[in-house]
Design a protein around this nucleic acid. Structure first.
Length: 813
RNA sequence: GCCGGGGUGGCGAAAUGGCAGACGCGGCGGACUUAAAAUCCGCUUCCCGCAAGGGAGUGUGGGUUCAAGUCCCUCCCCCGGCACCA
């Protein structure tokens, strides 16, 4: 043995050489077919932790594999550099967000390089630099011009800790802020919104996308499409010019069963509907409702409450006069904020009617219904009764017939309702792209002209979280002149949600230095869409949904020619530690650096791939690192200690050739399916076989060399430094990463001697060795003549013999 | 409550309806060494047995099948999504 495996030395050596020779620089005019493989860019929080490596090492291996498969692979990296932690650091430690962020980026670049990844750093994108956010602002203007950005006063989510508004998507199901975990509250504020709702229907279509069902379901649920009808109920007495109440329902077929109408307590019409004698009671109920948190209010355990307003509406389909109630089970933000109460056919309405003694009128007969009172709401299908001219129809036909009839007489119309709301994009924080808008006394809202971009963040803001943007306090920033009329005017002081930055960074990678627009159209045309995108599923209704919307909008503006940014999406799992997600604030972050210095980057990379299925994640445990390191050292010794052939025999040569080809096949298939864990296992197996051969010396030097070469080529994506070093030692051309991925021959993967399992009544009794080409008769005879089988068969009648070619024989007695 | 995903050795995990536990960790034994570390070799699901061998076994209970971790049904547990959305 000449030397031992010292990863630190070879990793530094090759990282320098790769950089010096620009090995990973991607050329736009490369004739090979393009392939865009992207990993979500990280937030520069300070240090790369093991979770980052878990996201990046396997995706880097896959990109390297595709490169060896003959693709011109674009695999870039950058930094999602705007965001709150930078500002919090400024508040806490007096460091300017810019300095804090850029320092972190500098450190993380080094850590990313130490991973041995193939990122083309000449394409790096940093979202907080003016050369980048200039274009983020430019997109804002495009959205504004297209009518997709608007300012409106609306009830919004507010995080009291972050001191800013949040998009609906940033509030977790339990009502807390997704960033800091504080319970969000509501405020009525004038804010900027993007009209994602305009694309709700199209966003439900995933044709041509290879996304997991899980991910699609999350988005589909979030969009929340309901098909139904909007129905007008005429107010018995007109209030402040309003003649009717509109409701949204998915069950227009039950409209004859309406016995009350319920309005959301905070609906603006409520005071007008309330009769004088009910005023006190209603006011009290409304104020109680406002004090409930969303979680309290939406708890399904909570008993229904409500009060009568004193007013009535008339059901235009049957002339029924029904009371108007208010109740907190009706949400002002969904549908029209008014619900028709059909207690016989809706569980919630049933509960409400029971409690307040309201009539329960059956209009869809359950099967075999004797006509008595219902014990519970009947939701299922049935024949229509008590429904005038529609009696006798089954309810599905009734749905259509009633809609048609209502559309004729104007009482209602078919409509579709979505749960998704427009995206709130403004934030009351400093470290983001300023919204490029000016407010002028004469001209109103005026967009900053394109040629005046970027609107630079002033460096000298005061970072106290006051609930208003720190930019508000920077007089030199705020006061400006109106771009339209030249009079004194004021700038918008809110900044954009950082998800706006990540909406388009993948476009920028295609032409990072371009200064005539956010991207060079021909480069985007060449590289987009992204063929493979990998990242965490926690972005399902955030970045991944926003980006789809963003690209569809750009397409409709004529800026791009495709409607989906990411063709194949793969969500890796989460590395946790002690039940919790790794986070700086929790203090459970595991740094890879110590492991890299102890075992080398190749070991850490391969170990992260080896620990289990990539989509599964798991609790961090470093006990297996040594095993993977041992494997790499064995591979090192395989090459480094040389091979001496002694007694060459054909069977051994055939065996190692078969093992090699089988491994190529399995490893290739595993990589195609992101099964990194079994890929590593297969490579270990081949290594073990080669170890035996090396000790025995029973194959020729030529066979040895070609098997070892295949092993190194297959290891190049996972352990790029080791493979490169050993490839060179073997006399291979620079670089192993420019070599073609090996191919297998199906013929060579086949065994000629196979072990056949012999079962008696399904229990394993013996194994026999037979030739690949054995006939059923021969195999059967061999099986039945085995002493161990006869022990169980003799004296019994053979009823059946099952023969599975190449696998087993099962004798049934 | 509804919809996904999952439950396999001491641990991380493998397994087109056809040898359960590949690969690795850990453990045990051996070689090398004065010794240890490192390395290499062997064993390692559990139970009975000196052994040969036998029996049991993939959350639970049932079913289909010559054959079930894998398919079907029941129930339990864990993770994720949705949940008063009319």
């Amino acid at each position: 043995m000449d030397s031992s495996y010292v990863p630190g030395e070879i990793e530094r050596k090759w990282q320098e050489r790769w950089e010096a020779t620009r090995l990973y620089q991607v050329k736009d005019d490369d004739p090979r077919p393009k392939r865009y493989e992207l990993t979500m860019f990280p937030y520069p929080s300070g240090d790369l932790h093991i979770g980052h490596w878990y996201a990046m090492a396997p995706s880097d291996a896959h990109a390297r594999y595709m490169r060896m498969r003959g693709f011109n692979v674009l695999h870039p990296m950058g930094f999602d550099a705007f965001g709150l932690p930078a500002e919090n650091a400024a508040i806490k430690r007096g460091i300017h967000p810019y300095v804090w962020t850029m320092d972190n980026i500098q450190r993380m670049r080094g850590q990313l390089r130490s991973m041995g990844s193939m990122y083309d750093w000449s394409r790096e994108v940093v979202a907080c630099l003016p050369e980048y956010y200039k274009w983020t602002q430019w997109f804002f203007l495009k959205f504004y011009q297209s009518g997709l950005a608007y300012k409106a006063k609306a009830p919004v989510n507010w995080c009291p800790s972050c001191q800013t508004v949040l998009a609906n998507e940033q509030v977790l199901p339990d009502g807390t802020c997704e960033r800091c975990g504080t319970t969000a509250t509501h405020k009525e504020m004038e804010q900027w919104f993007f009209r994602i709702t305009r694309y709700a229907e199209e966003l439900l279509n995933y044709d041509g996308l290879e996304w997991s069902e899980r991910l699609r379901t999350i988005q589909t649920n979030w969009i929340g499409k309901s098909v139904g009808a909007e129905i007008s109920f005429r107010l018995e007495r007109e209030v402040s010019g309003v003649k009717d109440l509109k409701v949204f329902t998915t069950r227009p077929d039950t409209v004859f069963g309406v016995t009350f109408v319920v309005v959301a307590p905070e609906h603006p019409i409520v005071p007008h509907l309330t009769t004088p004698e009910r005023q006190a009671e209603v006011a009290e109920y409304v104020s109680n409702t406002r004090q409930l948190t969303d979680i309290q209010r939406q708890s399904t355990e909570k008993e229904k409450t409500g009060v009568f307003t004193g007013s009535y509406v008339v059901n235009q389909l049957n002339g029924d006069r029904v009371p108007i109630w208010i109740s907190d089970y009706v949400l002002v933000s969904y549908g029209t904020g008014v619900v028709m109460g059909v207690p016989a056919h809706d569980a919630r309405d049933f509960e409400f009617a029971k409690k307040y003694g309201l009539e329960i009128k059956v209009v869809i007969a359950p099967p075999d219904w004797p006509g008595d009172e219902l014990e519970a709401a009947y939701i299922g299908p049935g024949r229509m009764v008590n429904s005038g001219q529609f009696n006798g129809l089954d309810n599905e036909q009734g749905f259509e017939a009633i809609c048609e009839s209502m559309e004729k007489n104007g009482a209602g119309k078919r409509t579709i309702s979505y749960r998704i709301r427009d995206w709130l994009v403004s934030r009351q924080r400093y470290w983001g792209a300023p919204i490029p808008i000016v407010y002028c006394e004469h001209c109103g809202i005026v967009p900053v002209p394109e040629e005046k971009l970027p609107v630079l963040l002033p460096p000298d803001a005061e970072f106290k979280p006051t609930g208003e943007s720190p930019l508000k306090g920077v007089a030199s920033f705020v006061s400006t002149t109106c771009p339209r009329c030249g009079h004194p005017a004021q700038r918008e002081t809110d900044t954009m949600d950082t998800f706006m930055c990540s909406n388009w960074y993948y476009l920028r990678y295609t032409s990072p230095g371009y200064d005539k627009g956010p991207f060079a159209p021909e480069k985007v045309k060449k590289w987009m869409p992204v063929d493979l995108y990998t990242g965490g599923i926690e972005h399902a209704v955030l970045h991944l949904l926003y980006s789809r919307f963003f690209i569809k909008a750009l397409r409709d503006m004529g800026l791009v020619e495709f409607g989906e940014p990411f063709i194949r999406m793969y969500n890796q799992g989460l590395i946790i530690r002690g039940k919790h997600k790794m986070s700086k604030s929790r203090g459970n972050v595991v740094a890879p650096d110590q492991y890299v210095s102890q075992f080398g980057a190749d070991t850490v990379r391969a170990y992260l791939m080896f620990i289990g299925p990539w989509d599964q994640g798991g609790d961090w445990n470093d006990s297996g690192l040594a095993g993977v390191n041992r494997w790499l050292a064995r591979v090192w010794n395989l090459v480094d200690s040389g091979y001496r052939s002694t007694t060459v025999d054909a069977a051994s040569e055939a065996r190692i050739r078969r093992a090699t080809h089988k491994t190529i096949k399995r490893v290739t298939q595993d990589l195609d399916a992101f099964r990194f864990n079994t890929m590593i296992a297969r490579l270990m197996e081949l290594t073990n076989e080669l170890g035996e051969v090396q000790r025995a010396g029973n194959i020729s030097g030529g066979e040895w060399k070609s098997a070892v070469e295949c092993l190194l080529l297959m290891m190049a994506p996972s352990a790029p430094h080791l493979a490169e070093e050993l490839w060179e030692k073997q006399g291979g051309d620079y670089s192993v990463h420019n070599q073609r991925w090996p191919e297998w021959e199906e013929e060579l993967t086949r065994e000629d001697e196979i072990t056949m399992v012999v079962q008696v009544n399904g229990k394993l009794r013996d194994r026999i060795s037979v030739s690949q080409s054995v006939s059923e008769g021969e195999a059967r005879e061999m099986a039945l003549s085995s002493a161990r089988v006869r022990q169980y068969v003799d004296g019994k009648q053979i009823r059946r013999v099952i023969y599975v070619p190449g696998k087993l024989i099962n004798v049934v007695v």
